[in-house]
């Protein structure tokens, strides 16, 4: 199962790869990274239908913001789940994200346990629907 993580901080890739080292090594999940909203959209458009099933995106990024990316993904690839990860845990961002169809809203610093739960839950869901 393929996940896309979008964040302008490049170290996020290393962090996620190490945090999910076992799951990635075992091939349970695959992770791809984009460092801007634009890059994320290009990546998603490359494969038809897109291989990525779930996008986790930061909100505060230069250029396209995470919320703009959310709108774009929801209109162009409605089957892909999108969750937000933001340092700004304010209600305004939260409501905006939820209204635009975000699945979950994670705040930074990321609680990797709850993130892992979300990913595992998603994998189970896709397995049972595939069975």
């Amino acid at each position: 199962m393929k996940f896309l993580i979008v964040d302008d901080e490049k170290d996020v890739e290393m962090l996620f790869r190490q945090k999910f080292r076992k799951e990635i090594k075992s091939g349970e999940i695959e992770m791809v990274f984009a460092f801007s909203g634009q890059e994320a959209l290009e990546l998603l458009a490359k494969d038809k239908p897109p291989e990525v099933m779930y996008v986790f995106s930061d909100i505060n990024m230069p250029g396209m913001t995470g919320l703009e990316l959310l709108d774009q993904v929801k209109s162009r690839f409605p089957t892909i789940n999108v969750s937000m990860i933001s340092a700004y845990g304010d209600t305004e961002n939260y409501n905006r994200a939820k209204e635009s169809g975000a699945k979950e809203f994670f705040t930074k610093p990321i609680d990797f346990d709850s993130l892992k739960e979300e990913i595992v839950g998603m994998m189970k869901l896709s397995k049972s629907s595939n069975d």
Binding site: L15, A87, P109, I110
Partner: peptide, 21 residues
């Protein structure tokens, strides 16, 4: 605070991760 928050998160996350390793 806003500027420091993100690097601080990395420090915490990577140290936690390294501890697990």
């Amino acid at each position: 605070a806003h500027e420091i928050k993100n690097p601080m998160n990395f420090v915490n996350n990577f140290s936690e991760l390294s501890l697990e390793y």
